[in-house]
């Protein structure tokens, strides 16, 4: 099979920033009566980006704050529809962009696990099968049946990570979140991501840790102002990026 796991072809995303913050019918009517036109600034967060990856590769995305990295991952996860271009994804995608999406403080950890799991596209039956593993990995034990509002933020993060990484993804997208929990849990997380890599899961990794990029990635794309500034072998791209950053400083 030579089908690519991920193929992003000419993707652009445009944010609209309204010049006047009109968010209600009342404001809109008043504004229109005064003869105003609904007007906005356009901001291109991504401009014709091409990225592709074969199965089982680890692709690093680096770039300054505001370069468009998170936007790119959101396009991949289907949160944002690009205004042009195409995104092809072959396989099940696990977005480690925001952990614990949809967690409700009033529900128990177990109820939240079902809720979050189905938000990630699993069925309730699949979640029942994974439940024991998730409880074990998150180290919550009997707290799993306590309401989420009684958890510490570390416990919530652990549960979120355990669920998100237990859904047997083909493609994992990670956005600077490997810093959850204490050192012990972080080591466990890193091990799990490493495990995915060994199993041949395609990983898209956004990180500011250039050392990690060198160690983990097979290929790197450097994003700058919404476009791919450079791509290639990690050592080369990271060197270019470091030079660029040094010149700016």
């Amino acid at each position: 099979m030579n089908m690519q796991a991920i193929k992003i072809s000419g993707v652009s995303v445009k944010y609209r920033l309204p010049k006047q913050a009109i968010r209600s019918v009342k404001e809109y009517v008043v504004y229109r009566l005064k003869g105003g036109r609904y007007d906005y600034h356009e901001f291109w967060a991504l401009k014709r980006v091409y990225i592709e990856s074969a199965r089982g590769k680890v692709i690093g995305i680096i770039g300054r704050n505001g370069a468009g990295k998170s936007t790119l991952l959101k396009v991949l996860a289907g949160v944002i529809k690009p205004i042009e271009g195409k995104v092809e994804i072959n396989g099940r995608i696990a977005p480690l962009i925001e952990l614990g999406a949809g967690f409700d403080p009033e529900l128990t950890g177990r109820e939240n696990t079902y809720l979050n799991g189905t938000i990630l596209g699993c069925t309730n039956r699949e979640m029942s099968q994974k439940m024991d593993q998730i409880v074990a990995f998150s180290e919550l034990n009997e707290f799993i049946d306590a309401p989420l509002r009684t958890y510490s933020s570390g416990m919530v993060a652990r549960l979120g990570f355990a669920i998100a990484t237990d859904i047997d993804p083909d493609i994992l997208i990670v956005d600077e979140i490997l810093g959850v929990g204490d050192a012990g849990f972080q080591a466990k997380c890193a091990k799990r991501v490493e495990g995915f890599r060994e199993k041949g899961v395609t990983i898209l990794l956004v990180t500011h840790d250039l050392g990690q990029v060198g160690k983990m990635c097979d290929y790197v794309h450097w994003l700058e102002q919404g476009t791919v500034r450079a791509h290639g072998k990690p050592s080369e791209v990271v060197a270019q990026y470091r030079k660029f950053m040094a010149e700016r400083a």
Partner: peptide, 14 residues
């Protein structure tokens, strides 16, 4: 479908 069930369940339990 499972998400739909869980959202309704949340509504009603809360």
């Amino acid at each position: 479908g499972g998400l739909l069930i869980n959202l309704v369940y949340r509504d009603l339990t809360v």
